[in-house]
Design a protein around this nucleic acid. Structure first.
Lengths: 131, 131
DNA sequence: ATAGATACACACTTTAGGGTAAGTACTTGT
DNA sequence: ACAAGTACTTACCCTAAAGTGTGTATCTAT
């Protein structure tokens, strides 16, 4: 999945910075455009694959599983599949994933405040953020 | 700087998600590989352009100003230039930039904990993170 | 027998971010 | 006269992330 090339400068930088800077470390795990959105929804509780699709209409199936697989590999989500047909697969946050809650919250509250101050797009209410 | 193409699906998604999801909003502003590192250093106080270069040895000049300009445009850093030769330019966090401190901190503490739990690279001490 | 539902997998293309390398402006020091 | 310092700028290339489209397995319902 998304093969990477060994020994490009960009990869060396990633490696260097990941060990040096905790923020980069986090970015590596929940960065990209879709992971935060997925986590956002999983904060409200476990979701089936198809549920996530519907909750995030603009994501493609490729991006969805790709990100889910990566999050799983990083120990942030847990996959539970029932051995039935049609398949019944649910994704949950792990303990590590739950640990991201304060991070996501800090981001959300900053964003809301910043959106208001910059008179940008109408601010979404904080109460919409999963408790 | 880094021209973007109008009306590509990826841009539409960005737009949609930025207004829908506060986390994406934040990522848009402090995402990428260098912005967090720059902010990290600016949390310790204003820094000259060349100071930042030395503090972040692996960054290229192009990336440095590019990111500084973007952060400035997003109201996260403030640029102060003295009208002297050779130039003397200092970058500071704005109030909005300072507001990111809890965000960066939440990230850092999660990262440190996660690194220990996953027995990954030796964890950097939290005390190294700027107060 | 055929359509539908679910959770993927895979090949192929596009785009934006990042990297490389070189140049600019303006003054001070030698 | 020329090198050095500072803060950039510009042009070009390469890669990884994201998007597009199609295919698969298995069972149930009609």
């Amino acid at each position: 999945m998304t093969a990477i090339k060994e020994s490009s400068t960009i990869q060396e930088n990633k490696l260097y910075n990941r060990s040096e800077c905790p923020v980069i470390y986090v970015m590596d795990k929940i960065g990209g455009y879709w992971k935060p959105v997925i986590l956002f929804h999983l904060l409200k509780g476990g979701k089936r694959y198809n549920e996530l699709r519907k909750l995030i209409p603009t994501i493609t199936e490729k991006m969805l599983i790709q990100n889910l697989k990566q999050l799983e590999a990083d120990g942030i989500v847990r996959r539970e599949a029932k051995a039935v047909v049609p398949p019944y697969v649910t994704y949950y946050l792990t303990t590590a994933g739950e640990g991201l809650r304060p991070v996501l919250y800090a981001m959300a509250s900053w964003a809301l405040e910043d959106q208001q101050n910059t008179k940008g797009a109408p601010a979404k209410q904080l109460k919409d953020f999963p408790a």
